[in-house]
Amino acid sequence: MTGLKAKAFKYGDDINTDYIISGKYKFKSADMEAMAVHAMEDLDPDYHDKVKPNGGFLVAGKNFGMGSSREQAPLVLIHSNTKAVLAKSFARIFYRNAINTGLPVVECDTDLIDDGDELVVDLEAGVVRNVTQGSEIPFPPLPPVMAQLLADGGLVEHFKKHGGFNL
C-alpha cells in the first residue's frame, strides 16, 4: 500500500486561521518550529503534542482555513508533523498557501472518517484508504496548475527552476 500513513485527528466545520495559529503568536516571530507548539491551540491545546511524535492527518468539515492570508497557518501544521489536511472544502487563500508551502490538501467526504482512524492517503491514485473502517474514499485530482507546482516542489522551487512562472 503506497501513500502517506497516519492517524486521523478530527475537528469540525469552518476552522479559521486564528484557530490554526493565533494572531497573538504569528506576529511575534518567523521561527515556525517555535510557533508550531501553538498550532490549533484554542481548539485543542494538545494538538502539537499528539501529532508531532508519529505524524497525523488533520481531518475537518467544510471551509477549512477560512480567514486570514497568514502562511504561518500551513507552516505550523507542517512543523507539527501534519501529513495532510483532509476536508470537505477549503477556504481559497489557505488552499493556495498549503500547496505553495508543500502541505498536501485533500478535498473529500470526511463524514466517512472518525477521530483516531488509521488512514493511508494516496495522492497519486486520488484515494484515501480508511484502514480502521476498511473503506476507500476517492477524491478528485489537484487542478493541473497546482499539480505542476507541487511536482516542482512548491512555488519557490518552480521559480528557481524556471526563473518565473512557466505554467
Partner: peptide, 20 residues
C-alpha cells in the same frame, strides 16, 4: 485579492501571478 506570502513573493519577483 489577498494571497499568502509565497504568492506575494512570486508577484513581487515577476509582476505576475496565476489565478483561476
Amino acid at each position: 485579492t489577498g494571497v499568502g506570502s509565497t504568492d506575494g513573493a512570486a508577484a513581487m519577483a515577476s509582476g505576475k501571478l496565476w489565478f483561476k
